[in-house]
Structure formats: structure tokens, C-alpha cells
């Protein structure tokens, strides 16, 4: 690993009056038990006794609780939202863990041992030993077909996923392709239907056979699920309508990348737009490398 020019932010002293990582040890243990169960049954949702956290439900409390229960003093934490380290909610969650853990934080994917994310998987490939924690708003992949969780549980138990395929088929008959842009359902280990959290379809292939441990926490819905390293994850599709991901016509305006997920930025009220990498760390590193390369080329 190369030494980062910007060193990981130095640990502050944890805020007095709170246990390390806010939750008491008993609670952390109960969450880890749920996470272990989840690892044992990839893609299956495990109920856990979610606690009220000092941030609102829907703002990442599931991810925060999972992170709080697995984080240790030696960890280096990265928090992203929409792929960026400097969006308000990412800043806020990172600030929280600095306050209650006094741990190191970083913006660099390869330096992090623990990455909490909302809506993206970093472009930099993850490695063994890293833990990805996803914030999940709606863990139940069947809820748009069957809002009753009692019924949905039965459907999972019986592997009754036909209605989901019917829904995808209906899209194809109407639109010629599957009209689902994000939170695209996947089949895990050939058994459980799982929601990958609202990541774009573009990120789905990164879930498959990923060397990192991937934990999914849904605080309000009180569910944890997991993908152990190197788990088979298949995005739902049909033989004659294979799964595809988005591509863009133009490269990133800042770093020139052509293989990343781009954010569309409206720059004036005349409809002008530019497209930039949503993964700020990846984009910054590429810009720095480009900058270093330029003098030698000219």
C-alpha cells in the first residue's frame, strides 16, 4: 500500500460519558450475533433488536449500528454517501464515529478496513479483510409485490419468487427491457432473493464474488443480512434478456474515466450539464495521477 499524501485524520479522544461506539457491549454483542447468523445464511434477513440512535431512522441507523458493533480501536473507517466522502450525511456519520470511538478515518478506499456506504460501492476494488457496511432503507425485496411481511416471509421460506420474475417479464413486454434502475434484486447463493440496497444497477456486478465481507443493516426495519466473501450473487434476468449496466457517452469531466458511474451536474439554467465521477476518492486519485503524468508527457 502506498503512503497517502493526505494522512488519515488523526484520532480524537472519544467523547466522555458514552461507551466505545455509543452502544453498550451487550447490545453490540446481540447485533454481532445477528450478523453471524446472516453470514451463515447469505442473503437471508435476520431480525435484530435495533436501537434508537442519535440520528434519525432512514439516515443510516442500520449501517451505523452494524458499524458500531464490529468496529475496533485499530480500525480505519471510510464513510461515503452517493459515492462521495464529503456529502453531508457521510460527513455527519464519520463525525459521529470520530466522536464516540476516536478512531482513524480516511477517504481512501484502499486504506479503510471498514467502509460504511449509502447508495454506492467504491470503484476501487475491495480486498480480503475489508468490511463493507451498507445502509438499507427497505430490506424486503418482495415488498412491492407483497406489502405484508408475514406473507413475504412465507414466500422466502418456500423460495416462491415467481411473481418477481413475472414483474420483470411485464416490464419486457411493455418496454422491451427491465425498467428497474437501482436496488435491482439479486439472487444470493442460488437461494435467497436480496435487495442490494439502493445502489445503481451499475454496481450490482461488484457484489458477486467480492473478497470483502459485505454486511447490510436496516435499522428501522430491524433486519441484518450479509454476503460473506466470495459469494455468488446474480442479478435477476432472462436468458434472452440478459442483465445490463448503464454506460455513458462521455468520460468524467474531471479525470477522464470512462468506466465509472457518473453524476450528472446541471451547471446553469440553460440545460447545460457535465458528468463527473460519483466516487470522489477514485476521481481525486485519478486526477492526482494524471497531474503527475502530465509533465513527463509534455
Amino acid at each position: 500500500m502506498t503512503l497517502s499524501p493526505q494522512l488519515p485524520s488523526s484520532p480524537a479522544l472519544p467523547e466522555p460519558g458514552f461507551n466505545f461506539a455509543y452502544l453498550d457491549e451487550q447490545t453490540k454483542r446481540s447485533i454481532r450475533r445477528a450478523a453471524l447468523k446472516a453470514v451463515a445464511i447469505p442473503g437471508h434477513q435476520i431480525p435484530f433488536s435495533s436501537r434508537e440512535m442519535p440520528m434519525s431512522y432512514g439516515w443510516g441507523t442500520g449501517g451505523v449500528q452494524v458499524t458500531a458493533s464490529v468496529i475496533g480501536q485499530m480500525d480505519t473507517l471510510k464513510v461515503i454517501d452517493q459515492g462521495a466522502d464529503d456529502t453531508t450525511n457521510a460527513v455527519n456519520i464519520r463525525r459521529f464515529f470520530r466522536k464516540v470511538c476516536g478512531i482513524n478515518t480516511t477517504e481512501r478506499t484502499e486504506e479503510a478496513t471498514l467502509i460504511q456506504t449509502r447508495h454506492r460501492i467504491p470503484e476501487t476494488p475491495l480486498r480480503e479483510g475489508q468490511i463493507m457496511v451498507y445502509q438499507v432503507p427497505m430490506p424486503e425485496p418482495l415488498y412491492f409485490i407483497e406489502p405484508s411481511r408475514t406473507e413475504a416471509n412465507k414466500m422466502h421460506a418456500l423460495e416462491e419468487y415467481g411473481p418477481v420474475y413475472v414483474r420483470l417479464y411485464e416490464d419486457i413486454t411493455r418496454f422491451g427491457h427491465i425498467a428497474m434502475a437501482y436496488d435491482y434484486p439479486v439472487m444470493v447463493n442460488d437461494r435467497y432473493l436480496m435487495k442490494p440496497s439502493p445502489i445503481p444497477r451499475f454496481d450490482n456486478p461488484k457484489l458477486h464474488m467480492n473478497p470483502a465481507l459485505q454486511l447490510f443493516g436496516a435499522g428501522r426495519e430491524k433486519r441484518i443480512y450479509a454476503l460473506p466473501p466470495y459469494t455468488k450473487v446474480k442479478s435477476l434476468d432472462f436468458e434472452d434478456h440478459p442483465f445490463t449496466v448503464e454506460t455513458w457517452d462521455q468520460p468524467c469531466e474531471f479525470c477522464g474515466a470512462t468506466d465509472t458511474y457518473l453524476d450528472e451536474v446541471v451547471t446553469d439554467d440553460q440545460g447545460s450539464r457535465l458528468w463527473i465521477c460519483s466516487d470522489t476518492d477514485y476521481c481525486n486519485q485519478r486526477q492526482q495521477n494524471n497531474h503527475l503524468l502530465t509533465p513527463t508527457l509534455s
Partner: peptide, 22 residues
């Protein structure tokens, strides 16, 4: 309820971009 309703204030650029493309 208040959390989940109000979380719509959080950035949703990524899924909105995906939805826009679609």
C-alpha cells in the same frame, strides 16, 4: 416514521441519475 419520511431530504443523486437514465 419521522425519520423515514424526512430522509427524503438526504441526497439521492445516484438513484435519481439511474431513474433519469431510465
Amino acid at each position: 416514521a419521522q425519520g423515514f419520511v424526512q430522509h427524503l431530504k438526504l441526497p439521492h443523486y445516484i438513484d435519481f441519475q439511474a431513474e433519469l437514465n431510465l
